[in-house]
Simulated assay, not measured.
Amino acid sequence: MKSYLFITLLAISFAVQAQSNTANYKYIIVPEKFSFLKQVNQYGLNTLTKALFEEKGFTVYFDNTEIPQEIAADRCKALTVDLQEKNSMFVTNLTLLLKDCKGAVVIKSKEGKSREKEYNTSYNLALRDAFTTFNDFSYSADQPTMLTGNLPVPANTNMETKTAPVYIDQPTATKPEQKEALLYAQAIGNGYQLIDATPKIVMILLKTSVEDCYISNNGNANGIVIKKNGNWFFEYYKNNVLVSEKLSIKF
Score class of each variant (00 low, 15 high):
residue 111 E to C: 04
residue 236 Y to T: 06
residue 181 A to V: 15
residue 119 Y to Q: 09
residue 9 L to M: 12
residue 64 N to V: 04
residue 229 N to D: 09
residue 142 D to Q: 13
residue 179 K to D: 14
residue 43 Y to P: 02
residue 173 A to I: 14
residue 212 D to A: 07
residue 115 R to V: 03
residue 47 T to I: 05
residue 175 K to S: 09
residue 205 L to R: 00
residue 220 N to Y: 11
residue 98 L to Q: 07
residue 101 C to I: 05
residue 230 G to M: 05
residue 98 L to Y: 01
residue 2 K to T: 11
residue 164 A to Y: 13
residue 120 N to Y: 00
residue 162 K to I: 12
residue 227 K to Y: 05
residue 246 K to I: 15
residue 210 V to N: 04
residue 44 G to S: 03
residue 88 S to P: 05
residue 188 I to Y: 02
residue 64 N to R: 06
residue 74 D to I: 02
residue 237 Y to A: 02
residue 105 V to Y: 01
residue 171 P to W: 07
residue 85 E to C: 06
residue 176 P to S: 12
residue 101 C to A: 10
residue 241 V to R: 14
residue 75 R to S: 13
residue 33 K to Q: 13
residue 160 E to D: 08
residue 174 T to Y: 10
residue 116 E to W: 02
residue 13 S to G: 11
residue 216 S to G: 12
residue 68 P to E: 07
residue 80 T to S: 15
residue 44 G to P: 03
residue 33 K to A: 08
residue 237 Y to R: 08
residue 150 N to A: 12
residue 131 F to P: 00
residue 29 I to L: 14
residue 218 N to S: 13
residue 29 I to D: 05
residue 234 F to M: 07
residue 61 Y to T: 06
residue 74 D to A: 02
residue 209 S to G: 06
residue 157 T to V: 08
residue 207 K to N: 14
residue 68 P to Y: 07
residue 105 V to H: 02
residue 17 Q to W: 08
residue 24 N to C: 10
residue 36 F to W: 00
residue 113 K to T: 10
residue 147 L to E: 15
residue 105 V to C: 01
residue 47 T to V: 06
residue 148 T to G: 10
residue 89 M to V: 14
residue 10 L to R: 04
residue 33 K to M: 04
residue 35 S to T: 00
residue 244 S to T: 12
residue 112 G to H: 01
residue 27 Y to G: 01
residue 175 K to V: 11
residue 81 V to E: 10
residue 151 L to P: 03
residue 49 T to N: 00
residue 134 F to T: 05
residue 93 N to D: 00
residue 133 T to N: 07
residue 78 A to T: 08
residue 108 K to S: 15
residue 49 T to E: 00
residue 220 N to E: 15
residue 129 D to K: 03
residue 210 V to Q: 04
residue 181 A to H: 09
residue 137 F to T: 14
residue 208 T to N: 09
residue 128 R to V: 08
residue 164 A to P: 10
residue 75 R to D: 10
residue 196 D to E: 11
residue 153 V to R: 14
residue 160 E to Q: 06
residue 65 T to M: 12
residue 202 V to H: 04
residue 63 D to V: 13
residue 240 N to P: 00
residue 197 A to K: 02
